[in-house]
């Protein structure tokens, strides 16, 4: 089963994301901030990372920039999932190597649609 790492400082968001991702047949791991995510990736690279922007300790964008420097750090598909919903944030995320971008609030449809776009799942 493929693994999706959910990086968000909100327990509620992680829980909602986990439910959706498990429905899409992903094994779900959680991290509370960029630092924890970085440590997780140092031991095992997940297939997908659902990434919040604003978090304590290390932000999502900072983590993404570090991730892409790591050995095999280019392999995970990174989908930002954040309340930051302006063009400049989107552009910055994509420049840093994100694969897709979700503006919160999100629901099953949006996650599914984005995962289809980047070829993670098939349209049934």
């Amino acid at each position: 089963m493929r693994t999706c790492l959910v990086v968000d400082d909100s327990r509620v968001v992680r829980k909602v994301a986990r439910r959706i991702l498990e429905d899409l047949h992903f094994n779900c791991e959680e991290a509370e901030d960029g630092q924890q995510a970085y440590e997780y990736c140092a031991t095992a690279m997940p297939e997908v990372i659902l990434l919040d922007w604003n978090m304590p300790v290390m932000s999502g964008i900072e983590f993404l920039e570090k991730l892409r420097q790591m050995p095999s750090g280019d392999s995970p598909r990174v989908v930002f999932c954040t309340t930051e919903n302006d063009m400049s944030h989107i552009q910055r995320a994509m420049m840093a190597g994100a694969n897709e971008y979700i503006m919160k609030p999100f629901d099953t449809d949006i996650i599914k649609s984005k995962f289809i776009q980047i070829g993670l799942i098939d349209e049934e």
Binding site: N85, Q91, M94, M103, D109, I110, S113, Q117
Partner: peptide, 20 residues
Amino acid sequence: TQFEVQRGLPIQYLMKYFMQ
């Protein structure tokens, strides 16, 4: 709406063809 542009629309197309 933000909801509508997230269903099915790749982010690159949003960046290229839409203005906020």
